[in-house]
Write a protein that binds this DNA or RNA. Structure first.
Lengths: 252, 252
DNA sequence: GTATTTGCCTGACCTACATCAAGTCTCATG
DNA sequence: CATGAGACTTGATGTAGGTCAGGCAAATAC
């Protein structure tokens, strides 16, 4: 059975790690069955967030990290002059909130881009559980390290790439994330608006729009509102520059 | 005795965590004495790197994280088209190499900007020691979380700030890091070149140069080669926007 | 000592992208 | 069904910062 044939995980809140199709991507990877059980017990499944609802606010006391189960989140930072700077988009199986550990305060807010359900993982529990399960601790180190790695790639993007490369990079990045979860890597739906894309990439909305219509004219992608299909994969890869995503070789 | 009156830590390679004036800033914070001892035993003090020498190369197998004891490092990423993108500068007490944990490969290189000595902390040892010392594990989580936090601030900088704000942010950031180690927050020496600053901030060398001379003309800073003095602190803070560095309140 | 390289500064010019302005399209709501 | 508010697109224009080119000074080599 394919990992994604099921729709169980938005059906009831009681679903568990063992039966969750994301479990291989999420934290429990590399854990023994009994350990997954123990992890499972500290996780709280909350009722889904509606579009626009906030999971946690910048400045709030840190308590939990969250694994996205369905839907998408954005995290953002309100800058001193009041503008929002989006720092990331989070898809199912991805962990949000790690930046709160340092100061026990969330330095960013997290908001749902669509109806989104998450698993809440109280960090104090996770931490004490990680005392008992060394491989869980290693797993957390890895997840955090990967985040550092990804953020550094993002810096390269923001610092060195032009508008075309930025947009192509985002699309290819999303493509890879869909693929990893078993969805099509070439055809998908953007859950964020053009404005949010621009904000994230350091571009004006208009630029995002222009780049995407130009890509479409040049038969690199096909766009229909939020639906995107990548047509000319080599062209996209060339724009991104192969060897993205740290040095990570995608083994999936 | 001030934390910085001593010069012991570049005098001999055998210096230990207990006697290191950086220990309060580095990993051992919040560790019991006996635990510091145990940590101390896994750390290898290497002979100093000369300017331009590489600590580890992008793509190399990951083995250790490093704490800078004296001097400065930069980390950088060679992009697909062969250019270098600097992802960070590292001052004494700061930890380099955390991004290697994820894939067991360093995704960046680290190079000395001046004569630099480091403590090598073999990660496998650190990890197993962290099984025995929960507070050490927490400390590692915190350090990694802080890194994520800082990187996100860097994204805001690269995505939203103009040249003046970028340069001001870097100077103020360095200022804060000097201060934390007990040095002057207003007068310090840049260990990186203008080119490296530009590269890091996503600016051309010429722009960095122009911004700094303009700052000087407007009596905001005083520049003499690599020596910088901040004259008009409020102006600088205004450029940076107060409330930098995540939401962290500097308690030092 | 001179030659050469390297880092930094400065001016003139150019371009990629932002900004402004005016649509069109979508879709939610009374 | 009409209406109104967002979200998206497109064109015209402006500008911050990049690029190019030249020059000086300090460091390094010869």
């Amino acid at each position: 059975m394919s990992a994604l044939q099921s729709n169980r995980f938005n059906s009831k809140l009681t679903s568990q790690c063992q039966s969750c199709s994301l479990s291989a991507l999420c934290l429990p990877i590399a854990l023994a069955d009994e350990d997954v059980n123990r992890l499972d017990q500290i996780i709280e499944r909350k009722k889904p967030l509606k579009k626009g609802e906030v999971l946690f606010h910048q400045g709030e006391e840190f308590s939990s990290v969250y694994a996205v189960r369905t839907g998408t989140l954005k995290t953002f930072n309100i800058t001193n002059n009041g503008e929002e700077q989006i720092t990331g988009f989070y898809c199912p199986s991805e962990l949000v909130g790690l930046s709160g550990i340092d100061n026990n305060i969330y330095p960013i807010s997290a908001k749902a881009l669509e109806t989104t359900s998450v698993c809440e993982i109280p960090f104090s529990h996770l931490e004490s559980l990680s005392n008992q399960i060394p491989s869980l601790k290693s797993q957390i180190f890895k997840v955090m390290s990967r985040k550092i790695c990804d953020d550094q790639q993002m810096m390269v993007l923001l610092g060195k790439k032009n508008a075309d490369e930025k947009v192509a990079s985002l699309l290819m990045n999303l493509s890879g994330r869909f693929k990893r979860r078993g969805y099509s890597a070439v055809s998908f739906r953007l859950s964020m608006s053009r404005g949010e894309i621009g904000n994230y990439l350091g571009l004006a909305v208009e630029t995002v729009s222009r780049v995407m219509t130009r890509f479409q004219k040049n038969n690199i992608i096909q766009v229909n509102g939020k639906e995107v299909t990548i047509i000319d994969l080599p062209a996209m890869q060339k724009l991104v520059g192969i060897a993205e995503d740290c040095v990570r070789i995608d083994t999936v």
